[in-house]
Amino acid sequence: MKKFKFPMRYVPISATILVFFIVYLIGIISFDNFGSPKVFLDLFVDNAYLGIAVIGTALVILTGGIDLSVGSIIAFTSILIAKMIATGSNALVAIALALAIGIAFGMLQGWLIHCFSLPPFLVTLAGMFFIRGCGFIVSEESIGIKNDPVFNFIQNDLTIKLGKGMNLRFIVIVYIVVLLAAIFFSQRTRSGRSIYAIGDNELAATLMGIPVGRTKIMTYTIAGFCSALAGVVYAVYLKAGNPLNCVGLEMDAIAAVVIGGTLLTGGVGYVFGSLFGVLVLGLIQTLIVFDGRINSWWTRIIVGLLVLAFIFMQNLITKISKSKSKSQ
C-alpha cells in the first residue's frame, strides 16, 4: 500500500513558485501589457546580476554561513573594469582580472573562516568594508564605458534576436548557464552534497568523514566568483562602473534566498528556489513601476513582509516535521 505524500521538503519551494505566479497573475489582471513576453524577458535582463550574486549567497547559506561582501565586490569589480578600459586596457583582460580578484577574495574569506574558526558574519563584514574601500581607491567617481569593442561585441553580436523586437541578451544567457551549473553542482556532485551536509550538522559531517574545511573554503570561493561575475554583468548592463553602487545588495540577495525557500540555518533548500526568489523580487518592482502612482520604496515594504511570511512558514514546517518524527 503506497499513499502519495507530498514530501515536506518541497513545501517551501512550492510556496515560492506559487507566490511568483500569484504576483504575476495580479500584474496581468491589473495592467494590459504586463503579460507580454517582453516584460518577462526584461525581468531577467534587469535582475541577471542580482541572480548571479544570489547563487553564491544561496550556496553559502546552505553551509550555514553568510556572505556580506556581495554588494561591495560587485561595486569593486564594476569600477575596476570601467577604470581599466578607460585607461586603455583590453576589456577581456579587465574582466579576467576582476574575476580572478573575486575568486581570490572569496577564497581568502573562506580560509579565514575555516582556519581560525571565525564567524562568517564578521569575516565577510570586514571583507565588505575592505573591498568597498578598494573600489573608491580605484576611482571616486562613476566611470562610463564607451565605444569599447568587446562591450559592443557582447551587446550586439552575442544577443540572440527572438523577433518581434525581443532580444535574449548575453547577460541573461550567462545567468541561466551559471544557474543550471549551480543546480547541477549542488545536487549531483559530492562537493555539492557536502555543502548540504555541513549546513545540516557540521559536527556530524566531520564525523562522517566529509572534508568540511575544503568544502567551506570552496563555497566561499564560489561565492566570491559569483559576486565578481555579477559585477562584470553589472558593468555590461549599465555600461559603467561606480564604487557607490549596490550598497546593501547582499541583503537583497539574502532576502531572495529566504523567499526562495532556503533555511537560513543551512542544510535545507534548493539553488533552483533562488531563481524564483529573484523573480519575485523583480516582479514586485516591475509591478510598482507599472502602477506609477505608488512610491517605489513600497517594494521594500512588500519584500520585508514576504521575508517575514517565509520565515514563519519555515518555522512551522520545521515544527511539524519535528513533531512527526517524535510521534513515531
Partner: peptide
C-alpha cells in the same frame, strides 16, 4: 546519532562515497 536529519536516508548512508556515473556525477 551523528547524522544529517534533513537529508534523505540514502544520502546519509552514501554521502562522501556516492556511486558516480562515468562523468563523475552522482548516480542517484
Amino acid at each position: 546519532v551523528n547524522l544529517l536529519p534533513d537529508l534523505s536516508v540514502a544520502e546519509n548512508i552514501c554521502i562522501g562515497r556516492e556511486p558516480r556515473t562515468k562523468l563523475g556525477f552522482i548516480d542517484k
